[in-house]
């Protein structure tokens, strides 16, 4: 059964058509890559799925239920965890507090019970803390727990953000460029860790990523977007070798330019002779 189905998503901002009839399907425990040049609409489709944007057309289904009319916080509570391209953390708080805040929807006691300090709330708080520490340890972030988020290096922040997304107890994890700011070696290491996390947390993962070796290594299926439209989809290797994908990334050469280049080459050869 597909965990996520986005059917015919179209969204306009004023006169700009950001997405046109985009359809994605993500099956359980799959890792699905979303690639495409800058401005292709990758983050926009994330925002449509997580509820930060309302598409003018199209429906989003999560685990079979239509969630198109739910607010972002409701979708998060249902089990869609998400990271942001430019780091979505509460910056003035410590790593641990962010982990506790991220468990908001998991907490069973009401806000007022917490304010008057009922014994059950104190017990729950201890459980939340243990859970937060366990996740931080899995990601090797345990030593950072009491540091304020502000001032941590970018690469570390991307990792902390994955930890907070896991703390929301997701079934579907949506990562917006988790490998940005990482070197080639580190990106591949992240790939191994994501495979490990999928196994450990029973996750289905969708990721936006520019790092091609990482995508090839871990993705089961890849969608390529360009100018707000689905260019192609399929297994990673065939998508990478798809001529249109290559053209979208490298830019298409105009025929006149090609002729011009040939002429110049010929001219140069002539001059040498």
């Amino acid at each position: 059964m597909p965990v996520l189905e986005a059917n015919g998503i179209s969204i306009r901002f004023g006169g700009v058509q950001a997405l046109t009839d985009v359809t994605l399907t993500v099956n359980e425990f799959e890792i699905v890559g979303l690639i495409g040049p800058n401005g292709a609409g990758k983050t926009t489709i994330f925002n449509c799925i997580t509820g930060f944007y309302r598409p003018q057309e199209g429906r989003v289904r999560f685990k079979g239920d239509d969630i198109s009319d739910l607010a972002a916080h409701e979708r998060s509570a249902l089990g869609i965890g998400r990271t942001f391209q430019n780091v979505g953390l509460v910056k003035s708080e410590t790593v641990l507090t962010n982990m506790l805040t991220a468990q908001h929807a998991v907490i069973e006691y009401g806000p007022v019970a917490g304010m008057v300090g009922l014994p059950t709330t104190l017990r729950t708080e201890r459980v939340l803390k243990r859970r937060a520490e366990a996740i931080l340890d899995i990601l090797d972030l345990g030593h950072l727990r009491d540091l304020p988020v502000q001032g941590l290096p970018y690469g570390v922040l991307k990792r902390v953000e994955i930890a907070t997304a896991l703390a929301t107890d997701p079934d579907l994890l949506m990562l917006d460029e988790p490998g940005s700011g990482l070197g080639p070696q580190e990106a591949l290491k992240l790939g191994d860790e994501l495979l490990e996390l999928r196994r450990e947390f029973d996750l289905t993962i969708v990721l936006i990523e520019h790092h091609v070796p990482l995508v090839l290594k871990i993705c089961d299926y890849v969608y390529c977007l360009n100018f707000g439209q689905l260019l192609t989809e399929g297994d990673p290797i065939s998508v990478r070798n798809h001529p249109e994908v290559v053209a979208a990334y490298l830019g298409e050469e105009a025929p006149e330019a090609e002729e011009e280049a040939e002429r110049l080459e010929a001219g140069l050869e002539g001059a040498e002779l």
Binding site: T50, H73, G88, T101, H104, A105
Partner: peptide
């Protein structure tokens, strides 16, 4: 914690389920 999060960023707060 929810209040602190939404003060800094309503978007992050919503993403945390607030």
């Amino acid at each position: 914690r929810a209040m602190q999060a939404l003060r800094e960023s309503p978007q992050v707060a919503a993403n945390y389920g607030v």
